[in-house]
Design a protein around this nucleic acid. Sequence first.
DNA 1: CTGTCATTCAAGACATTAGTTGAATGATAT
DNA 2: ATATCATTCAACTAATGTCTTGAATGACAG
Lengths: 227, 227
Amino acid sequence: MSTSNKLALIDEYASIARALASPHRMRLLEQLAQGEKGVDALAEGTGLAFANCSQHLQELRRVGLVTSRREGKAVIYRLTDDDTLRLMALIQKIARNTIALVDEILDRIAGGTVRPEPVSREVLAERLAAGDVVVLDIRPPDEYATGHIPGALSAPLEEVAKLAESLDPSTPIYAYCRGPYCLYADRAAAELRQRGFDARTVEGGLPDWRADGRPVAEGNKAVDAVF
Amino acid sequence: MSTSNKLALIDEYASIARALASPHRMRLLEQLAQGEKGVDALAEGTGLAFANCSQHLQELRRVGLVTSRREGKAVIYRLTDDDTLRLMALIQKIARNTIALVDEILDRIAGGTVRPEPVSREVLAERLAAGDVVVLDIRPPDEYATGHIPGALSAPLEEVAKLAESLDPSTPIYAYCRGPYCLYADRAAAELRQRGFDARTVEGGLPDWRADGRPVAEGNKAVDAVF
DNA sequence: CTGTCATTCAAGACATTAGTTGAATGATAT
DNA sequence: ATATCATTCAACTAATGTCTTGAATGACAG
């Protein structure tokens, strides 16, 4: 009984890995890591046929890596939670450490760029007080509305690229999200650095900022306040 | 060019997931999580034919999840590093959160047991001074020999079960390994709790203990000192 | 050097999974 | 209600992965 239980468990674990074991599904996850999307946008982005794309998405949903909701005629998919993002990051790390080809390609893409260390919350507070710095909140808009670092702009991951066009490349950018195990800010900073910005992440997330006893703003006005 | 690079990368990421996407290979990794083993022991443990087992192991090695070394006629396999262990743990966590069946089975196995919080190094030091506590070092023996908490017993994961037979169930057990991202101590404590011991992990690993400026013992004598 | 043992390689039969097509569903607007 | 749109389902063919079998390699003992 215990043995057959264990075997059943292992089958389920393997089924999660199997869902990731297709380049198409991995690309779908990459797309979704930038924000929630509808089936047709995903089919477009990956070059898959609608029906095929839908089937892959259902496979991902079946094992819980993504979830979906209906919005009118459209079905919107998104990553279930940060664990999915962490799983992708861990696989990529293992790939980098062990598959020579991957390391080589990443080096070529990065062009020798190294990821800078996160900035401490203390330093961020000083820079904020001094002005001439942009702080980005990379969480979903509703979380931003509930509470954010005063002066921070709401920048959900999928809007970072668009937002970047209206930012000054000479002003340093600091990005934060939920906390040390949330990877949104990491991704946003990486994307911004690739576009030539001086972008870094902040140590910890909003909960840590709160725990420090630092001020927190509410509502959606911060964006207007800056422009 | 950049696009084809990215596609090539994603193929490699998917290949790592594919290596995990077989119940047999997942079982092999489970076996290896308990310590390095030869091909015939693994074939025995999983019920696979030699040749088949060998092929699965090579698949795992190809993507870097395990490594092997030759020892006389035998080839010994082991997990490459803690990332492999972390990957397995993360998949299991996702399975638990999203697949109802998994959660149900785990509940049945655990019988309602909850994993206790790790004990702080400060508290451990006090308990050690007071005596009447067993500390287990769950790292490979060579790392134990290089340095360990004074009074700790060397208990590589694969020997924990055997060692448990000579321990008193009324004495609390504290297990540690390399650090917060190493899962050996977690596994050992879980196994010991399942056998009725009061077993917990220690916060951080030996490097953290050292960083605290606490004493470190060397050599292999600690085991004798206790028996 | 020959035999033995543990492991790996190679090739074929078998089973599973992926992609495509066309029809069905579910929600919205006329 | 009917038409329309986005998505999903169902069924078939093509592709891929798995297991078994038997031979080949590499290390060691006599």
